[in-house]
């Protein structure tokens, strides 16, 4: 079976630090698929090409709200609508590993592919007049000039909480595939027929049991004996350092 390379992003671990996005920009602007042109980077309205953007959402109603960070880059869809609409075949999907790429030499900059992508994952470079997007760091993952442990996407290497896993999800033994299976990894917009390769691992509510004496000894607090201390505390993932 052909490989299907993908990113698996653990939303439970992501802390929204944007390290993946900035390292992606740093590597790719000088990589084979650069530059990621900036317009007015120090001006009032900075704009520029980014292959990866981290969006922040608030979920729930105050006071029971939770913050969700959603890093989003090209999903390398199995049934990629951007590939089908391209009039020049500049956008193509590689048979061997499922990576969707843009050939800048052939792209005429008609932007049609970006209209067809429901995830908003294509970025037009006004300066070069071509469409750009995440390459799944195709110039890193097979790059023999890099030490083997660094043949990983730049975003994966940068993530301080190791929320990002890269791998072949067609191989059930791969770390990425195992995580999807064990943690109920999901796709964005599952009802549309794109079949994205990238998966997200959902946020989890973590419940732990804390005994009364544990609170007493650990926190060294004096608790009036007649006052009942709840023996269960509900703690969300935000309260716990995830190993």
């Amino acid at each position: 079976m052909n490989k299907r390379m993908a990113l698996v992003i653990d939303l439970n671990k992501c802390v929204g630090c944007h390290a993946c996005a900035t390292n992606c920009k740093a590597w790719n602007t000088g990589g084979d698929y650069g530059p990621l042109t900036d317009v007015e980077p120090y001006g009032k309205n900075p704009d520029g090409v980014w292959f990866n953007r981290v969006q922040t959402y608030e979920v729930g109603k105050y006071p029971n709200t939770e913050i969700l960070y959603l890093p989003k880059s090209c999903m390398h869809c199995k049934d990629a609508p951007c590939v089908k609409v391209c009039p020049t075949s500049a956008t193509y999907k590689r048979e061997s590993d499922g990576i969707v790429l843009v050939n800048y030499e052939e792209c005429i900059g008609c932007k049609y592919c970006s209209w067809a992508c429901p995830y908003g994952c294509r970025e037009f470079d006004d300066y070069d007049g071509v469409m750009k997007k995440c390459t799944l760091c195709v110039d890193r993952i097979y790059n023999e000039n890099l030490p083997e442990e660094e043949r990983q996407p730049a975003c994966v290497l940068a993530c301080p909480t190791r929320a990002r896993t890269f791998g072949n999800i067609n191989d059930p033994e791969s770390e990425a595939a195992v995580k999807i299976k064990e943690r109920n990894g999901y796709k964005l917009m599952p009802e549309v027929s794109t079949s994205p390769s990238n998966h997200y691992l959902p946020k989890q509510k973590v419940k732990i049991q804390i005994d009364e004496d544990e609170i007493l000894t650990r926190k060294h607090v004096i608790v009036e004996t007649e006052k009942k201390v709840s023996s269960y505390a509900e703690v969300t993932s935000d309260d716990i350092a995830v190993p």
Partner: peptide, 24 residues
């Protein structure tokens, strides 16, 4: 809800991931 994969009717965008308007 299914665009970001959270089953909650209250979803608010706090930060769009860029300082200013961009292509998207």
């Amino acid at each position: 809800k299914n665009a970001i994969g959270v089953n909650d009717p209250n979803i608010k965008l706090m930060d769009m991931g860029a300082s200013y308007d961009h292509y998207n």
